[in-house]
Amino acid sequence: MRLNCPHCGERSLEEFTYRGDATVRRPALDAPAESWVDYVYLRENPAGRHEEYWYHGAGCRAWLVVERDTTTHMVHGVRPAGAASENARSES
């Protein structure tokens, strides 16, 4: 399996660490307990396209959001997580 890191280019699996669902959002501190239980424990398990976090730990140390089809392993897109690239230059 290979991922096209937006910083480093296409790299092989062993440079990355999988974390899981990238669609969950950390609740506010005063959110009800149920929201926290959902955030910490509940995960969708879709058959098809899914957004997940991967960490390019052996490369540029960027956290990435990978859109992957769980049924075919096809990778449909990779982008930096969060807005950590706010300082990124305008040129591609």
């Binding site: 660490t17 990238a22 976090y53 960490y55 730990g57 956290w63 930096p80 997580a81 969060g82 950590a84």
Partner: peptide, 18 residues
């Protein structure tokens, strides 16, 4: 050491990028 570094990067890049 490695997992904490990864955790800090996650917190910074994914949870609180600002």
């Amino acid at each position: 050491a490695g997992p904490v570094m990864q955790h800090l990067e996650f917190c910074h890049q994914c949870l609180w990028p600002d």
